[in-house]
Design a binder for these strands. Structure first.
Length: 256
DNA sequence: AACCACCCCAACCGCAACAGT
DNA sequence: CACTGTTGCGGTTGGGGTGGT
């Protein structure tokens, strides 16, 4: 655990080029992980978490530098509509971008853009567009921008009764099929309709289907396309789930 | 040139989940 | 099962840069 400066409370210190090179060299030699040992081994006067963060957000070789493109911005907006403030998941769909970067971009750029354009949800609520949850459990429910009478409180309440991430994952792996999806609300289905053009589709409260990866495999995609029809009331038809289960599509299911 | 206000982003925090013993 | 250390995540904030006066 990083400790606060007892005198000044909070004391941010930027990483120097020397520190960066020491850390980068250490990761190159020993690999990622075991961050608790890094400060001792390298002599860096940094806490393990600070080292990890510096590597993940700045030093990693696959980090993409430069401005967020229009395409990336569009994807961020669509994924945020789908997933809410789950920055790591959103970042996972943007190669080379970190969750911190996307979070910052949202808070400094996109949030303002969103405020400028009156959304439907603002007409139904007090205008607080972003969810303000105190814990990750509360964040669990994606905040959908629904054109109808979406009710956030009822959606959150619904989420409490949903299967936990771990149970969901285990159930999927053990049973070889997608567990109960009866929690799909009518409101959610409207969101799926809106997101038909997206490369990612939510198939439950705790996982999404990676359409991008699916499309890469032409054999699978070709045979999958026909049963993947969308149902008017539930967003994704039962055919999807049965087809996915029959064809061992675990690798295309991304747990949230 | 000096000051101020604002903005952006890196770095921090608390909490929760996970892994190991 | 309980405990402890580690890791991952989202929220928050201090520092530095920039533009306006």
């Amino acid at each position: 655990m990083c400790t606060k400066n007892p005198k000044q409370g909070f004391n941010k210190v930027s990483w120097s080029a020397t520190e960066d090179s020491i850390l980068a060299e250490h990761v190159r030699t020993h690999g990622e992980g075991r961050w608790g040992r890094v400060p001792k081994r390298t002599g860096l006067n940094r806490c393990p978490r600070s080292c990890r963060l510096r590597w993940l957000n700045y030093l990693r070789p696959d980090i993409k530098r430069g401005n967020i493109s229009i395409e990336e911005e569009d994807l961020i907006i669509r994924l945020h509509n789908l997933l809410g403030n789950r920055w790591s998941l959103i970042a996972g769909r943007l190669p080379g971008r970190t969750d911190n970067e996307i979070k910052n971009y949202w808070n400094t750029v996109l949030k303002k853009k969103k405020l400028k354009v009156p959304s439907v949800e603002s007409m139904h609520s007090n205008g607080e567009g972003d969810q303000k949850c105190k814990s990750k459990k509360e964040i669990g429910s994606p905040q959908f921008e629904c054109p109808t009478l979406f009710n956030e409180s009822s959606a959150c309440k619904e989420h409490d009764n949903r299967t936990s991430k771990r149970e969901y994952k285990e159930a999927w792996l053990n049973a070889g099929k997608i567990p109960d999806v009866s929690f799909f609300s009518l409101e959610d289905s409207y969101t799926f309709d809106q997101l038909m053009g997206s490369d990612i589709e939510q198939i439950g409260s705790s996982c999404v289907l990676d359409i991008d990866d699916l499309e890469k495999d032409q054999r699978i995609w070709g045979s999958a396309y026909s049963p993947m029809s969308f149902d008017d009331s539930w967003g994704i038809s039962d055919n999807w789930f049965s087809w996915l289960g029959e064809n061992s599509m675990e690798s295309y299911i991304l747990p949230l």
